[in-house]
Amino acid sequence: MTPFDFLSPQTLAEACHALAAAGRRPIAGGTDVIPQWRAGRFQAETLVDLSRVPGLSDVTLRDGEIAIGALSTYTELHASPVLRAHAPLLAEVSAMIGGAQTQNRGTIGGNIANASPAGDTLPPLLVLDAQVDLISAAGERSLALSAFLRGPGQTASEAHEIIRRVRFAPLPRGARSLFLRLGNRQGMVISVVSAAFVLQLDDHGRVEEARVALGAVAPTAIRCAEAEALLRGRPLDDDLIARAADAAVAAARPIDDVRASAAYRRHGVRVLVRRGLTQLSAPGGGEQ
């Protein structure tokens, strides 16, 4: 627990400037930073607090795009009418994270930047095809979340970059979506396996669009391209669902840890994908 210095910029420009120096890292809700720092797994000479920077915690729907400020807390996301209407799985997952205390402090930007394989907003954001907007003293850039996540705790951003927002298109009318997870306890639990789905069916029950993402079963949260390709254009029946689940299992590269074995995680992928797709195939299942 090595001491650090603390800076509290009041504007985005100040924050970018503050982070430009070496040894500095951002802190938002601190729900990952502080436990990791105590455990000796987070090093910084100076923490730059983003929580006072204005304009980073709005959820807006503008020009056919939803933008979530990185500093939005889970409590805010859960309550957001925009998300409830256009990306309900993100509103739902926000109520599953930690307890009320964690939800009042933890932010979506922190969950993304922390890049835990088990980060629960990541599979939903992946199936929403989210873009991550970064800003730093050097300028701005934007990356697909799938490209942003590189490994456990590893991302494509540099230490001086701030996640400003995540953006994605609202789910179209009639799209079905769902987030499911397995854990070893009911409350306050890190996912052992998680899965997010977006599905659009045509009038004949044929899959028009399918997106499936998994958490906690690979070095990062992942999309399951093979399963998606298999689903597209086919009628969503039990057989297809079973094959999609197989494809998802094949995409997973889980490990053993204190929470579960790799074997159970693979089994969990099959169960969640089968369940998720079955639930979504039911009339009106997970529909907007």
Binding site: L182, N184, V192, V249, A260, S261, A263, Y264, R265, R266, H267, G268, R270
Partner: peptide
Amino acid sequence: LTPERVAARWPEYTG
């Protein structure tokens, strides 16, 4: 009786 232990003893366990 963790979920893993219980599931692993069911015939349809695929892990």
